[in-house]
Computed example of a mutant assay.
Amino acid sequence: MTVAEIISNIFLPISLAIIMLGMGMTLILSDFTRILRNPKSILIGLTNQLLVLPIIGFSLAIAFDLNPIMAVGLMILSTCPGGATSNLITQVCRGNIALSVTLTAISSIICVFTIPFILTFALDYFGTDTGVAIKLPIVNTIIQIMGITIIPISIGMFIRRLNPNFARRMEKPMRTASTVIFIVVFIAVLAANYNILGTAMIEVGVPTLLLNILTMGLGYLTARLFKLNLKNAISITVESGIQNGTLAIVIATTILNNFEMSIPTAAYAIWMFITGGILMWLFGNRPEMESEAV
């Protein structure tokens, strides 16, 4: 196992789980029940993630006349849900963490069923039908969500319930730790994709950059158009543009058995960490406003 693999397969999941525990210490049960009672923000976020993102990816593949392999690779990325990294970025940006976690969990489960449908269409449309049945592991996906996200957050919420003062004291250190983990993840992505970054940027650098900017921009605009507050708008923006690159690579290399199809994910990973970092810089130090609490 290489150093990059050790970082991505062992260190990062453990680190992200610790960060999720810290996020849990900033949350109470009413944060989630409030979202469920008024699900407009969830519906907007899921629409962006599950419908708008694949449409934009498909449109860019056609507009840039990508070769079939790169086009399908872009579609693989466009069908993937957000991941724990989106929750991390949302925390540093002072977005609605409960909304971010809820969108990640729901979209991850729904995507298990939508990805095979969309990718079967993409493989047929772009002329690269491999005849492979696309089946994603439902149980493994749920276990991953539980292990890295839901269980640590639940433990953090339990700690806050037992010791609110400790939870409040840990808020700033955990936000700092989130920033450090974000940087480590970015370095790991660079290391893991070092050999194909040049090719990725040449072949699909511009389309993947546009995919990231357009999805984030539309996420923010639709949230504000439907009069969501800034915290919710930040969460939807991040969830719209930060994809589960690990899942995309697994689909390309393991399920479809085509390493080249993972090239768009390598390019996109760089862009999403750059734009995510910009969002963290823009929103991370802003003061909390009472009007954003709802």
Rank of each mutant, 00 (worst) to 15 (best):
I6R: 06
I7R: 00
N9S: 14
I10A: 12
P13L: 02
I14W: 00
S15L: 15
M20Q: 08
L21Y: 11
M25N: 10
L27S: 10
F32Q: 14
R34Q: 14
G45L: 06
T47N: 02
P54E: 07
I56Y: 02
L60A: 04
A61F: 09
A61C: 11
A63E: 02
F64I: 03
D65S: 15
A71W: 02
V72I: 14
I76S: 02
C80I: 05
G83H: 10
N87D: 00
T90M: 02
V101T: 12
T102H: 06
I106P: 06
I106N: 05
S107W: 10
T114P: 06
F117R: 07
F117S: 09
L119S: 04
L119R: 04
Y125E: 06
F126G: 01
G127T: 07
T128A: 14
D129Q: 07
A133Q: 12
L136Q: 05
L136Y: 08
P137C: 11
N140T: 15
I142Y: 09
I143R: 04
I143H: 03
T149M: 13
S154L: 10
I155S: 06
G156S: 08
F158N: 14
R160G: 04
P173S: 03
M174G: 04
T176L: 12
A177S: 11
T179Q: 12
I187W: 03
V189G: 06
L190H: 01
A191W: 02
Y194H: 10
N195M: 09
E203R: 14
V204G: 01
G205M: 13
V206R: 07
V206H: 06
T208K: 08
T215Y: 03
G217N: 10
G217E: 13
Y220V: 00
R224S: 10
K231H: 01
S235C: 04
N244K: 09
G245L: 15
I249Y: 08
N257I: 11
N258R: 07
N258E: 14
S262I: 09
S262E: 08
P264F: 12
Y268N: 01
I270K: 02
I274F: 15
I274V: 15
L279K: 01
R286T: 07
P287C: 09
E288F: 14
M289G: 00
M289P: 00
E292N: 15
E292G: 15
